[in-house]
Amino acid sequence: MSDETKIDLELDLKGLLCPLPMVRVSQNITNVPVDGVIRAVATDPGAMADIPAWAASTGHEVLSAGKEGDLFVFLVKRTK
């Protein structure tokens, strides 16, 4: 998925402790157009639950969430 997906905004959330990665994604979601995608890279493992929970409760979509080495990488789509 990540290979083909067009990324509208890259967010470097490395070093931020939870819940700040989720806060930054939320603050930036309106900086991409509807259907646009944010690629967020975090180092706090808590983000693996926080960002999907935020997306589920606000109605946005996590296209993928996974670990790449020491990093947690998310593709989040703005749905509305």
Binding site: S26, M48, P52, W54, A56, S57, T58
Partner: peptide
């Protein structure tokens, strides 16, 4: 939003148990 996400996580523990 932060409060709602925490409530969602709590209501759907099975969904997050693996990553946690």
């Amino acid at each position: 939003q932060l409060a709602d996400a925490a409530i969602f996580k709590g209501d759907n523990v099975a969904m997050f148990e693996g990553v946690i």
